[in-house]
C-alpha cells in the first residue's frame, strides 16, 4: 500500500515529511549527562531501567505518571535514542550466530530447532531441580516475575502486522497463553499463584527495584521487538526460541519446586508449560517463523536474530545467577535499587 492522497494543508505537510528520510539523532535535546556512547548497553543499569519504564508506559503505566506521557514526542525521542544503543548491542551480540544459521540448508524451523539445541549455556534448570536451596529458588522465581506477570503481552503487539495465515497461528498460540477463554488459566495468573504459594509478592512489578540489568534487558528486548513493526520477524523468532527451550526446563523447575515442598499449586505453572510449550514450539517455529520466512525471505535474518537474542540473554542470565550463587551472593537485591525520584 502507498500513502493515501493528501486532503488538505495538514495531511499534505505530514505526508510530505513521511516521504523524506526520518531526521534521526539530535533533533530533540536529551537529558543532561547523556553520554557520547554507552560502554555496555546490556549491562547499563541506568539505560535498562529507563528503557523498561518508558516501555511500561505502553503496558500498564504507573500510578504516579500521567497517561499522556505514553505519546509525548520528547519522551519517545529519548526512548528511541536508548533503543538505538540497545539494538546495536543486541545485533553485535547475535551477529556470529545469525551468520551461521541464515541462508543455511533445509527448513528454517529445523535450523532454528537445531540452533536451540546447540546453544551452549549453564544448566540452570538442572541446578534448580536437584541442588538449589529454598532461598535460591525464591530468588529465581522473583527474578522471572518481571516477565511472567506480563507473559505473552510483548508478542501480542505483532498480531495486526502479520498476514492472515500466520496471524491465525499466533492468535491460536496466544489464546492458549491467555487461558483458552478461562481467566483462571491465563499464564500470568498461574505465575502469580506460584509467587503467592512460594511466599513471594505476586503484585505486578513488585521486584522491579531489585532486579539486575540482565533481567531488564531480557524484558526490554521483547518490548523492542514487539513495539517496532520493523522488528516483527525478530519478535516471532524470539517467541519461537523461547517456546522451544521451555518444555524440558519446565519439567525440571516443577520437580525442583516439589523437592523443596512448595506444593502442587506452586508447581502448576511449570506443569502447564511442559505440555503447552511442546505444542507452542511447533506452532511458533513451523507455523509462524518458517511460514513467515517463506512468505517474505527478507524476514529470515531478523527471525534468526530474535531467536539468537532469546537464547543469548537466557545464557547470560543463567551465567550471572549461577555465578552469584557459586560465590554465596545473590542477583536479586537492594544493590540494584536506585535513588528515590524527587516528587
Amino acid at each position: 500500500m502507498l500513502l493515501p492522497r493528501a486532503r488538505g494543508a495538514i495531511s499534505a505537510e505530514v505526508f510530505a515529511r513521511l516521504l523524506q528520510a526520518p531526521p534521526g539523532v539530535g533533533t530533540v535535546p536529551m537529558p543532561p549527562g547523556w553520554p557520547d556512547h554507552f560502554e555496555d548497553p546490556l549491562e547499563d543499569e541506568d539505560l535498562q531501567v529507563t528503557l523498561w519504564a518508558l516501555y511500561e508506559l505502553h503496558y500498564k503505566g504507573f500510578e504516579d505518571v500521567e497517561d499522556e506521557w505514553e505519546w509525548d514526542a520528547g519522551m519517545l525521542a529519548v526512548r528511541r535514542e536508548l533503543e538505538r544503543s540497545f539494538e546495536a548491542a543486541l545485533r553485535t551480540l547475535a551477529e556470529p550466530h545469525v551468520r551461521a544459521v541464515v541462508g543455511g540448508k533445509g527448513d528454517l524451523a529445523d535450523r532454528l530447532f537445531d540452533l536451540t539445541e546447540a546453544f551452549e549455556g549453564p544448566e540452570l534448570s538442572a541446578y534448580l531441580q536437584r541442588t538449589a536451596t529454598r532461598e535460591q529458588t525464591e530468588e529465581f522465581l522473583a527474578l522471572r516475575s518481571i516477565y511472567h506477570l506480563k507473559e505473552s503481552d510483548p508478542q501480542s503487539w505483532a498480531i495486526p502486522r502479520l498476514q492472515p495465515a500466520i496471524k491465525s497461528r499466533l492468535v491460536e498460540l496466544q489464546f492458549d497463553e491467555y487461558g483458552g477463554g478461562r481467566p483462571e488459566r491465563v499464564h500470568q495468573a498461574l505465575y502469580a499463584t506460584t509467587l503467592e504459594r512460594a511466599g513471594l509478592d505476586p503484585a505486578y512489578g513488585a521486584y522491579i527495584d531489585d532486579v539486575p540489568a540482565i533481567v531488564l534487558a531480557t524484558n526490554n528486548a521483547m518490548s523492542l521487538f514487539g513495539l517496532h513493526r520493523r522488528l516483527n520477524g525478530a519478535a516471532m523468532g524470539h517467541l519461537g526460541a523461547f517456546e522451544a527451550t521451555s518444555s524440558l526446563p519446565c519439567v525440571r523447575y516443577a520437580a525442583g519446586l516439589r523437592r523443596l515442598g512448595f506444593g502442587d499449586d506452586a508447581a502448576f505453572y511449570f506443569d502447564e508449560h511442559v505440555e503447552a510449550d511442546a505444542v507452542h514450539e511447533q506452532l511458533a517455529l513451523r507455523g509462524i517463523c518458517a511460514a513467515l520466512a517463506l512468505d517474505d525471505p527478507s524476514q529470515e535474518a531478523d527471525i534468526v536474530f530474535g531467536a539468537v537474542i532469546c537464547l543469548a540473554l537466557d545464557v547470560r542470565f543463567a551465567e550471572q545467577l549461577l555465578g552469584a550463587w557459586d560465590s554465596d551472593a545473590n542477583l536479586l537485591g537492594p544493590e540494584h535499587d536506585g535513588v528515590p525520584v524527587p516528587a
Binding site: S247, L248, V251, V274, E275, D277, A278, V279
Partner: peptide, 13 residues
C-alpha cells in the same frame, strides 16, 4: 514422553 499421550519435548533428547 513422561506425560503420554501428550508430547513433553523428550524426543529432542
Amino acid at each position: 514422553s513422561g506425560r503420554k499421550p501428550w508430547c513433553d519435548g523428550t524426543h529432542k533428547l
